[in-house]
Amino acid sequence: MPAKKAKTKPEAKKPAKKLRKVPFWIGFDLGGTKMMASVLDANYTVLGSARKSTNGSDGAAKGRAKIIKAIEEAIAEAGVDPKGIQGIGIGCPGLVNPDKGILIFAPNLGWTNMALRKLLQTKFKCPIAVLNDVDAGTYGEYVLGAGKGARSLLGVFPGTGVGAGFVYNGQLVMGRAISAMELGNILFPGTHIGSPVFGTVTLEDLTSRLALASQAGLACYRGQLPELDKKTEGALRSIRSKALANAFRSGDDAAMIMFRNSIRYLGMGVATVVNLLAPDRITLGGGLVEELPGLYLNLLKEEVEHYAIPELARGIKYSLAKLGGQAVAVGAAAWLRSSNK
C-alpha cells in the first residue's frame, strides 16, 4: 500500500499591507519613448511611481490601457489608499485641447483625438488636467525649480522632438482652445527628402535627438564615427542621448560638427522667441541637455546673443532644469492644483 501523505498545515495568510489614508495627486508624463505615473503628496514629494514603454506604434487602444495600468501600479507602489486621489495631471507630447482634455495629435506616437480626460475621469472619478508635456515641465520649473521667483520663464527641451513652454506671471501661454509654443515647428528655408513641405525644414529636423541620431547613423555608415558604430551598428533606435554624448566627447569631427550646427540652429529658434516675448529666464532640459549640460548652456547662450536683438537678449538668466525626470509629472499636477483653486 502506498504510504499516506503527511498532512501539511495550510500556510498562514500574510496580513494585507495597511494602506496610508493620505490625500495625493497623480502627475503623469506621457513621453514619446516612455510613460511614467508619479504619486505626489501635498508638498510634491514622490511617494511612488511606475514606468512603461510607450511604443506608440502599438496603437492608441493599447496606449490607453497602459496609461491606466501605470497609474494603478504607481498607487499600489506608493502604498496609499486609492480613495485619497485628488486629481490627475497629464503632460502629453504634441498638441492638446486643455479645455476639453483631448490629445489632438502626438506626431511621434501617431495618436490623434485621444479623449484623455473622459478616459481618466471615468476610471478614477477625480479632476483631470491635460496639457502639453513641455508646458507641464516648464510650469513645474517655474513653480518649484529653476524658474522659481521669475516673472517669465521660457523652457526649452530638446528630446525626441524639440518642445518649448512659456510661463508669464504664473500663466502658461496657450491658445484659446489649443496648446501653443511649438518651437520645433518653426520653418527654415531648406529641404530634405522627408520634408512634408518642399523647400522647408523645421527646427526639429535640425536640432532634436532624433535628427542628431539620424545624422550620426549616416556618419556611422560612412566610417566617420567608428566607436559609435561599434556600439550601436548605426541603428537609429540604439543611438540614444548617452551614445550621442559619448560620440561628442570622443572628439570625432563628425560629432563635433553636427552638435555645433544643431545648437546654432536651436539658438536661432530661441532667439526668435526672445525677440517676441523677452523672457527674463531660460531653462534647458531633456536628455541631450542632461548628458551635455555645459555645451548646451554655454553655446546656446552665445548663439541667442548672436541672433536676438541685443537689448532683449541682455540680462537673461540661463539655467539647467532642476526637476529632472519628474519635471513633467510635477508640473502637470501643479497646474491641475492651481487651476482648481
Rank of each mutant, 00 (worst) to 15 (best):
N108H: 11
N108T: 13
N108M: 12
G110V: 04
W111L: 03
M114T: 11
L116I: 14
R117H: 08
L119D: 09
L120H: 02
L120V: 00
Q121D: 10
T122H: 11
K123L: 01
F124R: 05
F124C: 09
V130N: 02
L131I: 13
N132V: 12
D133Y: 09
V134W: 01
V134Y: 03
V134N: 07
V134G: 06
D135E: 15
G137L: 09
Y139N: 03
Y139I: 12
G140F: 08
E141P: 07
E141F: 08
Y142K: 05
L144Q: 11
G145E: 06
A146R: 00
A146Y: 02
K148W: 03
R151G: 12
L153D: 00
L153C: 01
L154N: 10
P158Y: 05
G159N: 01
G159V: 12
G159C: 07
T160L: 11
G161C: 06
V162I: 12
G163M: 13
G163H: 13
G165E: 08
G165Q: 07
V167F: 09
V167N: 01
V167K: 02
Y168D: 13
Q171D: 15
L172D: 01
V173E: 04
M174I: 13
G175V: 00
R176H: 09
R176G: 07
A177L: 00
I178Q: 15
A180P: 00
A180E: 09
M181C: 15
M181V: 14
E182R: 06
G184W: 08
G184Y: 03
G184M: 01
L187W: 06
L187F: 12
F188I: 11
F188V: 07
